[in-house]
């Protein structure tokens, strides 16, 4: 299945790739006022957003993003490899994710106190976390013994857990 670059507005590149699970959209760059979501083709009912490459998102981009999500309210969304910038907005802005969405995975920054290095570790649904529902509270099970890629010392999560994992709790 081929990939196409559909928007390169100077701040954000979006490539679309068709796959058996649906249309996979890879985002890379900054979601700001330059993002032109309306030009992105979104075929099919199932969309997978790979957001690992989103370095920055601001309110000017959020407005366009939320309006775009609303235009596609008949589709289902899977959010994959959400960067910290995206997770922060999921936590701050209720409504950032459409109701028909599922967060499959997201990155958690880890820091090494020994050498100052660090790494983004991917938390996957069903493994390192499970989202809360009306019947069950959410769960976060960080990997044990995350090692620094540079010096092999043990790394610590570089987030305030109660804030960063807030979106995993059930929201009515």
């Amino acid at each position: 299945m081929g990939a196409r670059i559909v928007d390169s507005s100077g701040g954000l590149d979006i490539t679309v790739r068709e796959s058996p699970e649906g249309s996979v959209l890879h985002f890379n760059g900054c979601v700001d006022e330059r993002a032109r979501f309306g030009t992105v083709p979104v075929p099919g009912p199932n969309l997978i957003f790979d957001l690992g490459g989103v370095a920055l998102i601001n309110s000017l981009g959020i407005r366009g993003w939320v309006n775009w999500m609303r235009e596609m309210r008949d589709k289902s969304f899977t959010f994959r490899r959400c960067s910290k910038a995206i997770v922060d907005q999921i936590n701050v802005l209720e409504g950032f994710l459409p109701p028909t969405s599922f967060v499959e995975s997201f990155f958690v920054p880890y820091h090494c106190d020994a050498c100052g290095g660090g790494e983004q570790i991917l938390f996957r649904h069903g493994e390192e976390f499970e989202k809360g529902t009306a019947d069950r509270s959410g769960r976060v099970s960080p990997p044990t013994g995350a090692e620094c890629p540079k010096c092999r010392a043990r790394m610590e999560m570089d987030v305030i857990e109660s804030k960063y994992f807030r979106f995993i709790r059930y929201r009515r």
Partner: peptide
């Protein structure tokens, strides 16, 4: 929002 943006901007 502003704190989250500042952190992301510095990281980027």
């Amino acid at each position: 929002y502003f704190q989250a943006y500042q952190e992301s901007a510095r990281a980027a």
